[in-house]
Design a binder for these strands. Structure first.
Length: 290
DNA sequence: AATCCGTGGAA
DNA sequence: TTTCCAAGGAT
């Protein structure tokens, strides 16, 4: 289906309201786009901006990053969260160098094969960096389509086949238009059709929105489990990683003990960090970034 | 398929 | 203060 009544209003809205983000500029490299996508996984734009800028300045190409240790990548990652993404980005740089001569691949399947690149990120890079026609399904797009087309407040916990069919059916025919459509719907979800308090008064398709037409009914799908935090392994790992990150060299176990009092959990989490490659043991009682 | 994996700002 | 959640991926 080439034409939908949603297309023109959303494309016009995007042309007028899009944010000026570094990875969207005309001179942004595919590498810049790929780095941004890894950083933006589960992480707000505002926190990504400064790290992305420093990252691209230090490592302007995949080859430059591939020449570094993984520890430097983890350190530069800073407090973005989910530091395994830094390892994956480094591994992706190595793979790009080895398999693609140092250039970010254009092919969706090649992108998907890179560490840290799943279905969403592969489609996003292929679309945003190379102007291809793909269904780019992130949480923003899913929410916009759930409301505007399906008429429900929020999408379910995982992408369904029906959602994917819907997204594909809405793709404009032309590659370049489809690529702009993808980023436009995403931007609408990020700026207007937000999760908690959507600004329907500013929405270009409010008069066509199935959810608004239905009276904006509350979410009634399966319960969305909220992640626990206090006392979890994730919190413990975060504390340990912060100690390693903030030290210029190896740290003694006493520093790690000071960061997390529970011995059993601390040792389990430290072992996990070693397995993940986020930390290394450099002496009988000292640890460091890899 | 369900769980795990960080962080910090905003409501 | 507590809760929610922000351009997901790997297992």
């Amino acid at each position: 289906m080439p034409e939908s009544p949603l297309h023109a209003p959303i494309l016009s809205w995007y042309a007028a309201h899009q944010r000026d983000l570094p990875w969207r500029r005309p001179d942004a490299s595919p590498w810049s786009v790929l780095v941004s996508e890894l950083m933006l996984q589960q992480t707000p734009v505002a926190r990504v901006l400064p790290v992305h800028e420093a990252w691209l300045e230090r490592w302007p190409t995949p080859a430059a990053l591939a020449a570094e240790t993984t520890g430097e990548a983890v350190r530069m990652w800073g407090r973005l969260g989910y530091p395994r993404r830094a390892l994956r980005l480094h591994a992706a740089a190595v793979a790009i160098l080895e398999r693609h001569g140092g250039s970010v691949p254009e092919d969706h399947a090649d992108l998907l094969a890179l560490p840290g690149v799943g279905e969403y990120t592969a489609a996003a890079v292929a679309s945003f960096a190379f102007g291809q026609r793909h269904a780019v399904m992130d949480t923003n797009v899913r929410r916009v389509l759930a409301r505007a087309v399906t008429g429900v407040a929020l999408p379910g916990p995982s992408v369904t086949a029906a959602e994917r069919r819907l997204a594909v059916s809405l793709l404009p025919d032309a590659d370049d238009v489809a690529a702009t459509w993808a980023v436009a719907v995403m931007e609408l979800g990020a700026l207007v059709c937000t999760a908690t308090s959507p600004a329907c008064g500013e929405c270009p398709v409010r008069d066509r929105c199935a959810w608004v037409a239905a009276g904006a009914p509350a979410y009634d799908g399966p319960a969305r489990r909220t992640q626990a935090w206090d006392g979890t392994d994730r919190q413990c790992r975060g504390r340990l990683m912060a100690v390693l990150r903030e030290s210029s060299g190896p740290v003694h176990v006493s520093s790690l003990e000071a960061a997390w009092p529970g011995t059993e959990q601390r040792e389990r989490c430290l072992a996990g960090l070693l397995v993940d490659g986020l930390a290394v043991r450099v002496g009988p009682e000292t640890y460091a970034l890899p």
